[in-house]
Amino acid sequence: MAEKVIKPNLSVVGKNQKEIIEIKNFQVWINENHILDDIQLSIPKNEITCIIGPSGSGKSTLIRSINRINDDVTGLNTQGEIIFNGLSINEKDVDVAQLRTQIGMVFQKPCVFPKSIKENVLFGIQHLKKLSKLEKLQIAEENLKAVSLWKEVSHRLNDKAISLSIGQQQRLCIARTLAVKPEVILLDEPTSSLDPVSTRAIEDMMVKLKENYTIVFVTHNIQQAKRIADNLVFICDGKLIEQGPASIIFSCSSNPQTKAYLRDEYCDC
């Protein structure tokens, strides 16, 4: 008897915990162009969700809607809902800056500020709360270690961040996003301007980070998605073609468009 009562409760709790972001009937127009068409998507917690699709298909537009960094694009209109932790993020009274501390983002090209390495790690967090000198050093060390940059830069934390290689700069950008302690990290083709070694380093890092973070990772590189994705989302021409566990889609997708894209990296939808 007791078991019967507990079981359904557990599954309800389990389901609620699993999905951290729900995207419902989401549409985007830029000026008169229909960029995203009726996107339905759920993003599970503590997993890596890879969004793949040909260039121009709307991957960036979708991921940039999740932290509302698209707000400043002129002529952009949206319809539908994005729900994060039960909160509909496009409501008028949402504090966007606060939302972005919970949903961090890493961009395609690393963009470090004209400051030192340490100041770059602290750049976001120090505007959110007052930090002592010791705390600053601890935060810098903790997050640089999380992106495996600590060994390389610990002796020159006060050097200009611009003196790092592009791959190191991108890891620094991830570190400064982690320092804010978000729940979700959005990454928009973060390795597309990097060398293969840095790319692998970031892929390995993602797999470690998913223990504590939910990761949404846009890539146009199918092999990369194969290496890291728990879930796969395939977008083509503004439409969501297929979503589901990566292992299933890669091994036995029944959708002809997905199959064609995974085989030829090309699709005519």
């Binding site: 960094i69 400043d72 800056a97 606060q98 961090g104 961009f107 500020f113 976001g124 505007h127």
Partner: peptide, 25 residues
């Protein structure tokens, strides 16, 4: 470049902080 505005607002800085901390310097 816009990436500076986006990179700093993506870290949770509000518009005023982006202007004072990133653009004005």
């Amino acid at each position: 470049p816009t990436v500076y505005r986006e990179s700093s607002s993506a870290l949770g800085l509000n518009k005023w902080q982006v202007i004072v901390q990133v653009l004005l310097p």
